[in-house]
Design a protein around this nucleic acid. Sequence first.
DNA 1: AGGCTACTCGTACTTAGTACGATGCGTCAA
DNA 2: TTGACGCATCGTACTAAGTACGAGTAGCCT
Lengths: 218, 218
Amino acid sequence: MGETARPSLNRDHVLEGAVALADEIGIGALTIRKLATALGTKPMTIYHYVSSKEEIVNGMVERVYSEIEKPSTEGDWLAALRQRCVSARGALNRHRWAAPLMESRTAPGPENLSHHDAVIACLRRGGLSWQMTAHAYAMLDAFIYGFALQEASLPSQAEGEFVEVARDIAADFDAEAYPHLVAFTVEHVFQPGYDFSDTFEFGLDLILETLGASAQAG
Amino acid sequence: MGETARPSLNRDHVLEGAVALADEIGIGALTIRKLATALGTKPMTIYHYVSSKEEIVNGMVERVYSEIEKPSTEGDWLAALRQRCVSARGALNRHRWAAPLMESRTAPGPENLSHHDAVIACLRRGGLSWQMTAHAYAMLDAFIYGFALQEASLPSQAEGEFVEVARDIAADFDAEAYPHLVAFTVEHVFQPGYDFSDTFEFGLDLILETLGASAQAG
DNA sequence: AGGCTACTCGTACTTAGTACGATGCGTCAA
DNA sequence: TTGACGCATCGTACTAAGTACGAGTAGCCT
């Protein structure tokens, strides 16, 4: 009944397919059966390449880490760091299921570890103390992951759709009960040119400027 | 077979039990069957009070919002805002499953909405423009939620246990492959007095100071 | 008393993860 | 060339979980 003894699949294909499918339907809806269908195979075939669904998730997270640009070891350290943060945000935006999973692996893989290593190296190169390195790294990633969490819950980039869905949700807002929220929505969110993602650059630069100044000082 | 026609349960009990159980075993392990057992009832009885598991989750999120102190409408707006952020962090720390769910409700409840309303009111009272209100709010919450995500993946507050688990994980770090990460772990994480949660205050104050200054200016 | 309603829960269907073991094909030693 | 071995595949089936359906029970109201 088997087609060939030559594998028509391998671990990387499985993980690649899993990431692609999760991008489409979300991690919650990702099932082995759907993944098998997407890969043109049967559920149990997948278990020839991974030992459990958990292992698939770990592998997916590794793939996301591999998409995040490591900060350059040369040149302006702050610029390198900034680049890395923008890249991380991009990866988390492409893979909206990822943010809650990135930090919660009990068995971090090499992409994960080497990424951390590179960022720490960058911060130290900037002259930060261990203490400040810890603060800076945690704070930057808190911001990035938290921002990704917020972006993940946004309707879609397609702005037409966004406003549409936003109006549907906002339609339930009671102007009596939530005057400031309603005003905010009307005065800001529904204004032309509104773009939530502007906040990322704003926040990132706010943090980086302060870090730069503190590196200067201490 | 029913005990009485007088309810032994109500919607609030269900949600309260669900939050408590999720605090213990995590949201992923929360099942209707386990919840029923914890409540001393049977699965289908729960569906008399909620229409689906999804509705339970929505209700759980509402409960978490209700635990977050709204910023005072009087006195120092920055202090009020700070208080609210600390309170939010506390709630997310008590309910470690919550962070990824708080922003992703498609049907936000009244606790959720009134909370947003109060925070926006506070920022406006501080003199921020709509644009700055949006930036400030999104940035603060990105930080808070992202920080909560990181804290949620930490072993436990029990510091003895923390160092133990951390050492187990760190034992796999290869000092050749990840020199900076290893150095960071040894020089900072394993030092006495290390406390990850210090970073929260650091980051929060960094953001609030900048906001305060910008409110002053603009 | 008879029935209405609120509440409870037994049963069973569906979807999901995955253990087990069979089946078939390519390879290689003799 | 052939036979046996092992890899890849997948049918079957067990377990867990969400939840639809409908029956049973108890108190209340007329």
